[in-house]
Design a protein around this nucleic acid. Structure first.
Lengths: 141, 141
DNA sequence: TTATTATTAGTAATAATTACTAATAAGGAA
DNA sequence: TTCCTTATTAGTAATTATTACTAATAATAA
């Protein structure tokens, strides 16, 4: 479970460092993503944040997601689905992705995965992550 | 390096099994993907196949890619880039993906990756794959 | 060879994301 | 506090990737 307060605190710091403004839109979008483990897409974030901030635009959500990603506070879940899914949990974990309904489940691990040695042959490694694709119980039966 | 002949042979068999027709479009699209290690996107496949088959349509390429994927002859490379990338190499390997230019490099491994035990909690596991994201030498400078 | 019907070419439509612009508001300076 | 600068936003238009539609074509089996 993510500590929302410390997440907002991190946003405050990162914004200051990057000369970016701490706007209510950024706070709400980050809050929303950090308070769920469903790895929502942009549209879902939009619908959810609209409940507390009715005039937010979808464009702002997309821009904010990109900003938060640039600041290293959230990241996109690698998938081959049409919509991007977002995650605010930076602890070591990977994802089970249902290829049928698109559900994304966390699989927590003791430590981050080491990249295969050969990786460094191709450039600077930023991140290594594991994807487990399958069919979730709900879709199965 | 993929053996194109055996790949086409597999297509022939799979098509027969699935009651699908062995069309020149399917052969050419599969040939194209199997003969490169660049993991092309649909547009690139289209441009390339057009050279030998000038009247093929982009729609056919998309449909064919989906069919070949259904037959288990190719698969999409998981990424968070706007375009889907395709791979015909089914041997154990993962990918280095440059987050800047989108280049995809193969990292070959001795065996397929075992899914974490927790994976099975969420459903039936179909595939496990590792992604290494970074910045390739070319983009680095 | 012929008949059946899966598949295709060409194009229109959709879905997700990004770009544009005038208005707004965050945050530093006075 | 108040004012200024300019990053950010809302609203909407545009773009990009992908999918759907339809009449024409061609792969396979009889």
């Amino acid at each position: 479970m993510i500590n929302i307060e410390s997440k907002i605190e991190a946003l405050k710091q990162k914004c200051a460092e990057a000369n970016m403004r701490l706007t209510p839109q950024r706070i709400e979008v980050l809050k929303m993503i950090a308070s769920t483990d469903t790895h929502p897409d942009a549209e879902t974030v939009y619908e959810s944040v609209k409940e507390v901030m009715p005039f937010i635009s979808l464009d702002t959500v997309y821009r904010t997601l990109a900003s938060l990603e640039d600041l290293g506070l959230i990241f996109k879940v690698d998938n081959e689905l049409p919509k991007s899914r977002y995650d605010a949990d930076l602890s070591p974990h990977c994802h089970f992705i249902c290829v049928k309904c698109g559900a994304v489940y966390d699989i927590f691990m003791d430590s981050h995965i080491e990249p295969p040695k050969e990786s460094f042959k191709y450039g600077e490694v930023l991140q290594t992550n594991l994807q487990v694709k399958g069919i979730c119980h709900k879709c199965k039966g």
